[in-house]
């Protein structure tokens, strides 16, 4: 099978995010960059499919030069090769531009199934998977927690509010992954050594050949609204504290 996994490089979940004084974005200086956690589920699922059914896993990533490290991480986990779409023209890409860039490359590669994360934890947008599916004219299965491969189709579980859906789709298809799908593996030391020799094709915007103007643009980045300082509830006994808390929730916060 020909399996594609899309990965994005994002700040580590622990990263402190500081907004630039002019509101034009965030300070990138101190940030440690990692693979988007939801993309780890996609890479893991891709590798599991390959191990069971044979085939080949290709990593596709849009990102600046530093994102090569994340592609290497995926290769060290066991993927076979990578495509790195790298050009300053993509620095301000929105989900639509990113999805079109990914689609332009994926169209040139054989593909039976394409994995994305359900969302990237930097922009938190959760759009690229669906937009990619549309650009490729393929069905999409989003927020998947279980996947069974059955030759020319897949069967997945998708939790929705208050229920779980079981859905079957003909391949090729785009699948977006969330926690629960699998336990992503760590790269082994031999894996890391091997990854250095695996091929990564670097493409600039001209080679991708799509329009790069964003349709939705973050005009201004601001710190989160400040929360008023909280109250610590005093009292000698748990019962006293509970009574005071109940009263405040009722009378002050009007929350119960």
């Amino acid at each position: 099978m020909n399996i594609i996994a899309c990965v994005k490089q994002v700040p580590d979940t622990e990263a402190q995010i500081k907004v630039k004084a002019d509101g034009s974005g965030i300070e990138e200086g101190q940030i440690k960059w990692v693979m988007n956690p939801y993309d780890e589920f996609g890479v893991e699922e891709a590798l599991k499919l390959k191990e069971k059914n044979g085939g080949d896993v290709t990593i596709v990533c849009v990102g600046p030069a530093r994102a090569m490290e994340t592609i290497r991480t995926a290769l060290a986990m066991g993927a076979d090769k990578g495509v790195h779409i790298c050009d300053p023209a993509f620095d301000n890409a929105d989900a639509f531009v990113t999805a079109n860039a990914l689609a332009a490359v994926i169209k040139t590669l054989p593909h039976d199934i394409i994995f994305c994360g359900q969302r990237a934890i930097d922009d938190d947008s959760g759009q690229v998977g669906s937009m990619l599916a549309e650009a490729l004219g393929l069905p999409q299965l989003t927020l998947v927690t279980k996947l069974e491969f059955a030759g020319s189709s897949v069967k997945v579980i998708r939790p929705i509010e208050g229920a779980q859906l079981s859905i079957e789709t003909a391949l090729p298809a785009v699948v977006t992954c969330q926690k629960g799908l699998n336990e992503p593996r760590y790269a082994s030391l031999p894996g890391i050594m091997k990854a250095k020799k695996k091929p990564v094709d670097v493409k600039n915007a001209a080679a991708v050949g799509i329009a790069t103007d964003a349709k939705a643009k973050v005009a201004k980045t601001v710190p989160p609204p400040a929360r008023p300082p909280g109250k610590i509830i005093c009292g000698d006994e748990p019962a006293q504290k509970a009574a005071e808390l109940g009263k405040l929730l009722r009378e002050e916060a009007k929350a119960i």
Binding site: F96, S130, E134, Q140, L143
Partner: peptide, 23 residues
């Protein structure tokens, strides 16, 4: 930005080649 809305909005935005801000 419910499960269904998230699934649908990206796909519709791509069909319309329009910008979408989620959640």
């Amino acid at each position: 930005a419910s499960v269904q809305g998230k699934d649908l909005s990206g796909r519709v935005a791509a069909k319309l080649a329009g910008g979408l801000a989620t959640d």
